[in-house]
Amino acid sequence: MTIVYVAPFSDKYKLHSTGMMERDQIAKFKLYYSGCLNVGPGGEGASLGSPHFLYVVTNWGGTCY
């Protein structure tokens, strides 16, 4: 698991939020990278909390990092 973005909030409708960033990145990688397993557009159930993190989970070596 790699943290790639930190924001003060998660609301997907709020600029500079992890929710909005999640949607942006999922849209890109779903389109151009077949290994992206996300199904939904992202930001559906963004939790509360600050700071809030965006991270990428991988199956590298069969283990989630």
Partner: peptide, 28 residues
């Protein structure tokens, strides 16, 4: 052939399978 899932969360300590992100929705 890297599989990735992109998600957001408050807690950075997490566990689970990457397959979790294959459920409907971007969050996992």
């Amino acid at each position: 052939e890297f599989k990735i899932g992109i998600t957001a969360g408050f807690l950075i300590i997490a566990s689970g399978s990457v397959l979790a992100v294959s459920t409907p929705g971007g969050s996992s």
